[in-house]
């Protein structure tokens, strides 16, 4: 009986995980959810435009499409700007942006997962795939429901910086730092092997420990708007402005150091669960 229950749960999990398909070839992945973009963070996965076929995530109802970009005197009928929104069982939507369409949506209200939506353009805009959760009114990281990338490489933590006295200081072994508040920024990235090439991506989560105590944790699970402000919502809610405050460096939270020796540990994970960590012992002066 126990074996049967385990088998049943496993098959349900497998079905839910693999009933969704990547909308286009993973070989053309360009950036992940949460990548800084235009003073905000990408709400989906981006693919390089290379005339690749695009399919729905799953069967869905067409609830919005636009194959022309017309606002005011803007009358752009190219590949760019095209949008398709599908509504799926489970109160979520999949969103497809920037692709060449074949007018398929004019004839039907529903799309099957095997029906091609169009192809990624070969112009200036990359194909973007996003998932919007109607219940939580937020964009969720599509890789949380898509089949795994089967990536086995750990993220890279290149360097860690402390921001105090209005400048960034690279952490090194036994560095002397002043006591008090400072902000951590991390130069880190995920590495994924795609088409026999290694590409850099935004990692999925970061945890910061000081003397064994977890002081900051954040994961790129979803983007939610609260009172006209957009937050990265995951292990905790952090405003996007804060997340991108370090430019290309990933925000690692505010910490408070007291006099003596402290150990700062950074743990970075990718969406497949591969983990990298780095520890620094610092000398905190008064």
């Amino acid at each position: 009986m126990k074996k049967f229950t385990i088998l049943f749960v496993f098959s349900i999990l497998s079905f839910s995980l693999y009933s969704y398909q990547w909308p286009t070839s993973k070989d053309f992945l360009l950036s992940f959810f949460g990548t800084p973009k235009n003073n905000c963070l990408s709400d989906g996965i981006e693919f390089t435009s290379d005339n690749q076929a695009i399919y729905p995530l799953a069967d869905g109802e067409i609830v919005y499409y636009q194959d022309e970009l017309i606002f005011g005197d803007l009358d752009y009928r190219g590949d760019e700007g095209n949008i398709l929104v599908l509504n799926h069982i489970g109160e979520f939507k999949s969103i497809y942006r920037n692709f060449t369409t074949n007018n398929l949506f004019n004839m039907s209200d529903n799309l099957k997962k095997e029906e091609m939506i169009g192809v990624s353009g070969n112009q200036n805009d990359n194909f973007i795939f996003s998932i919007y959760d109607d219940k939580r009114k937020s964009y969720i990281n599509p890789q949380q429901i898509l089949p795994f990338l089967q990536d086995e490489r750990k993220p890279i933590i290149d360097s860690v910086y402390l921001d105090y006295e209005d400048s960034l200081h690279k952490l090194s072994y036994n560095l002397s730092v002043p006591a008090g508040a400072s902000t951590i920024y991390v130069n880190t990235w995920d590495v994924v092997k795609i088409n026999n090439n290694f590409k850099k991506f935004t990692p999925f989560s970061i945890n910061v420990f000081v003397d064994g105590l977890e002081l900051y944790t954040s994961s790129f699970s979803s983007l939610v708007e609260i009172d006209n402000k957009i937050f990265v919502s995951g292990a905790s809610d952090t405003p996007v402005d804060t997340i991108i405050s370090g430019g290309e460096l990933l925000y690692g939270g505010n910490i408070f150091l007291t006099k003596g020796n402290s150990i700062i540990e950074i743990v970075v994970k990718d969406i497949d669960g591969n983990e990298a960590s780095k520890s620094y012992s610092v000398l905190v002066n008064k």
Binding site: N38, C40, D43, L74, G81, R97, N98, D125
Partner: peptide, 10 residues
């Protein structure tokens, strides 16, 4: 004169 971002969110 307006400019809408490529991701249509700004």
């Amino acid at each position: 004169l307006f400019i809408i971002s490529r991701d249509r969110k700004s």
